[in-house]
């Protein structure tokens, strides 16, 4: 396939089904380096399924997913993570009993090489890597403003803190492509602003982002392009302003709004 060299992620004709139910139906998408693409759509449209396919949790029925020109379908989730694809989960209580610092340090897993024996002895490379990881993690802790939850287990954090830690964990992984699954859902305005800044920071560092979000203001502000899914099909794609004007999108996603307009 001839594609521009800076295409990081190319998805073509992706279909996924569960026992006859079509969760994704011929979805295509491509992302250039440093781009932020939002995927929106009503609940059950297949947004999270799309992310699960990219990160290897679901195996699509057909189609291909190319990451830096390499087909990643059929790879295991941890192999895909090793290529530099990080994600957050919709429910931020991912590691309920781990402390904030441990989660971020675990995020550095791929950047360390300590063997089992070195780990048991804590000598030489183990110690050096630990200090280097900690240095990076501390920067992220400071930036994400999660100093107070360093030694707090996730279950004892507030919902907002959990979301922050979840994004900070992905940042600690230092990925090339980040998939964010509704990072703003359930947050108040202030917390949304904090998360917004975290995402902006990732953008500035030229990380490609796929953002699933219901908060339209964030979608408008953050994304270069927007993809709209409905019932597993892509119904529209374009710049945020184009999407806002699209009749079909309004029908499927903002149906309530157009109804209100008529009533008025």
């Amino acid at each position: 396939m001839d594609q521009p060299a800076d295409i990081i992620l190319a998805i073509e004709n992706l279909s996924l089904g569960f026992r006859g139910l079509k969760a994704l139906d011929g979805v295509g998408l491509s992302a250039r380096k440093g781009e932020t693409i939002s995927v929106i759509g009503p609940n059950g449209a297949g947004k999270t399924c799309l992310i699960n396919c990219i990160t290897g949790y679901y195996r699509p029925r057909e189609g291909c997913i190319l990451y830096r020109g390499r087909n990643i379908i059929g790879m295991k989730p941890h192999q895909i993570a090793r290529l530099g694809i990080g994600r957050t989960f919709q429910d931020p209580t991912t590691f309920p009993h781990m402390k904030g610092l441990d989660i971020l340090m675990a995020g550095r897993y791929l950047h360390t090489r300590t063997s089992l024996l070195e780990g048991l002895l804590f000598f030489g490379r183990s110690r050096a890597e630990e200090l280097a990881s900690r240095q990076r993690v501390e920067e992220i802790v400071a930036f994400a403003r999660i100093e107070e939850v360093r030694k707090v287990p996730v279950l004892a954090m507030t919902y907002g803190q959990r979301k922050q830690v979840e994004i900070a964990r992905v940042m600690a992984m230092g990925p090339g492509l980040v998939l964010l699954d509704e990072p703003m859902s359930g947050l108040d305005e202030f917390m949304k602003e904090v998360v917004n800044e975290l995402i902006l920071d990732m953008r500035q560092r030229n990380i490609t982002i796929i953002l699933i979000e219901h908060d339209m203001r964030a979608v408008m502000e953050l994304s270069d392009r927007v993809v709209v899914l409905d019932h597993g099909k892509k119904i529209a794609e374009g710049t945020p302003t184009e999407i806002m004007r699209d009749e079909q999108v309004a029908e499927a996603y903002l149906g309530g709004l157009s109804y209100e307009r008529e009533a008025a």
């Binding site: 990160t55 290897g56 949790y57 295991k76 989730p77 941890h78 993570a81 090793r82 990080g86 994600r87 989960f89 991912t94 590691f95 309920p96 009993h97 781990m98 441990d102 989660i103 340090m105 675990a106 995020g107 897993y109 791929l110 964990r169 992984m173």
Partner: peptide, 18 residues
């Protein structure tokens, strides 16, 4: 830490590259 991560959530641990 990889152990702690798989204890808490095997699926999410895989996404850390474990």
């Amino acid at each position: 830490r990889a152990f702690l991560a798989i204890r808490d959530n095997e699926d999410a641990a895989a996404n850390l590259g474990i």
